[in-house]
Design a protein around this nucleic acid. Structure first.
Length: 274
DNA sequence: ACAATATCCTGCGAGC
DNA sequence: TGCTCGCAGGATATTG
């Protein structure tokens, strides 16, 4: 599941490979992954564009192209955006193939087809749903303890749901939400309003620490995730609760449990997450 | 405004 | 062997 650390790793590995490259052709196999414009317009506009830089905002990849165009990609659940040699066989669920001027391919693959691509001109980024309403980047200066305090205050929603809300803070998904709550020893079903100042301070520290660890480990490859070179991350080897049902908590020796929350799994330690 | 739930999609494993 | 069911979850739409 590409969350902030995974998308950041894709950004870095793609930057090394495709900045300076020009798109010379495109094959759209599954048109529905392209949100805008329509395939004919997309094809016409993308060809000849040079990749000038890549940045990340939350879980969105943003490719700055020549002529003031911007291509935005969201990998959602199973999306992969990788560079491949032209001779490499095309896997099932490959939806879009960009031909690059160095003879290689940039390929968008997504087994479950939740991922999507937008191509807009500069200034039209507000046409991309969700991008303009994202909360602050958790690993940057703009994210403060004051912002987190305001986000949880007087909220009856459960804290895990608040962490997953991209308007509050950008880039946290199910894996890192569970790991952050474990690290701060807070139970996922606590309401925002119930948190003490001390707990909010711990949560703030854990958000930064766990996400930074995820980036350092180049992401969590639990099922499909790979970076822009097709390589897996290693953070799955450092998970304390996510997908760890029955394992012994190293902090209190209780057994890790899974509960259902909002249609999602919430992994936690019933012994020390209060 | 807020909080919870349904929806999209495919593959896999459990259970019968 | 082959079927059904539940599960995986990011973001949006819908409901209360």
């Amino acid at each position: 599941m590409p969350e902030l650390p995974e998308v950041e790793t894709v950004k870095r590995t793609l930057t090394e490979q495709i900045v300076g490259r020009t798109v010379t052709g495109i094959t759209i196999i599954q048109p529905s992954v392209i949100r805008c414009p329509a395939p004919a317009g997309f094809t016409q506009s993308i060809i000849g564009k040079k990749v000038q830089g890549i940045r990340r905002r939350g879980k969105y990849l943003i490719l700055n192209l020549s002529d003031d165009y911007t291509m935005v990609v969201h990998l959602r659940m199973t999306g992969q955006f990788t560079v491949a040699e032209r001779e490499t066989p095309i896997k099932k669920h490959t939806h879009v193939i960009f031909d690059l001027d160095d003879g290689r391919h940039l390929r968008f693959w997504d087994q479950r087809r939740f991922g999507c691509i937008w191509l807009v001109t500069k200034g039209a980024l507000d046409r991309i749903g969700g991008l303009m309403t994202l909360g602050p980047e958790p690993l940057e200066e703009g994210f403060t303890i004051d912002i987190l305090t305001k986000a949880v205050s007087n909220r009856q929603a459960r804290i895990k749901g608040i962490l997953l809300d991209q308007h509050v803070v950008a880039g946290i998904g199910n894996i890192y939400a569970d790991e952050i709550l474990y690290n701060s020893a807070i139970h996922p079903e606590r309401t925002g309003a119930s948190l003490t100042m001390d707990e909010i301070a711990r949560l703030f520290t854990s958000i930064k620490y766990i996400l930074a660890q995820g980036v350092e480990h180049r992401g969590t490859s639990f099922s499909d995730y790979v970076d822009g070179r097709g390589q897996k991350g290693s953070h799955q080897n450092y998970l304390k609760v996510y997908q760890q049902v029955g394992k012994i908590c190293e902090r209190c020796q209780a057994k890790i449990e899974r509960i259902k929350q909002g249609g999602r799994s919430a992994y936690h330690c019933p012994g020390c997450q209060k």
